[in-house]
């Protein structure tokens, strides 16, 4: 069946519930799914943050220091490190007054990918191109 594209749509704020975090950890699992698939079969998720899902993504988080849990920033950096496409909705960032400059990158870890702030139309395109769309 080759590659199966999935769009993971995160529409809830980080730390408000568990599923917004689970979207990232499930997306990261694309790195190891091949052990359960046949040769040449892959799953490629695109991680998209929309609506309130754009909240809680800023860099400089201290979740580990304060609560002893991994921060959403750390998860995003790991996603970038393993070359996942991470889209953040431009209109929703603007709606909440969040500057793009507050979003994290993983350059310090050697990642080449960066978060892409894109118009919703581009996220819509990712959903249309995906075989399966999962809302977290």
């Amino acid at each position: 069946m080759g590659d199966v594209k999935c769009a993971f749509i995160v529409q809830r704020p980080q730390y408000k519930g568990e599923t917004s975090r689970l979207a990232m950890t499930h997306a990261l699992a694309y790195q190891t799914v091949e052990i359960l698939l046949e040769d040449g079969e892959t799953v490629t998720p695109t991680l998209c943050f929309v609506g309130e899902g754009v909240l809680g993504l800023s860099k400089g988080q201290k979740a580990m220091e304060m609560y002893g849990i991994t921060s959403s920033e750390s998860h995003i950096k790991n996603c970038l490190l393993v070359d996942l496409d991470v889209f953040v909705c431009k209109e929703d960032l603007e709606k909440f007054g969040i500057p793009e400059s507050t979003l994290p990158d993983a350059e310090d870890m050697g990642a080449e990918k960066q978060i892409r702030v894109v118009p919703f139309a581009e996220i819509q395109k990712a959903m249309e191109e995906a075989k399966h769309v999962l809302f977290f």
Binding site: M1, A29, T32, V33, L36, V43, H132
Partner: peptide
């Protein structure tokens, strides 16, 4: 979690 991705595949 890769079990779910494999099921999705």
């Amino acid at each position: 979690m890769h079990w779910y991705l494999a099921a999705i595949h």
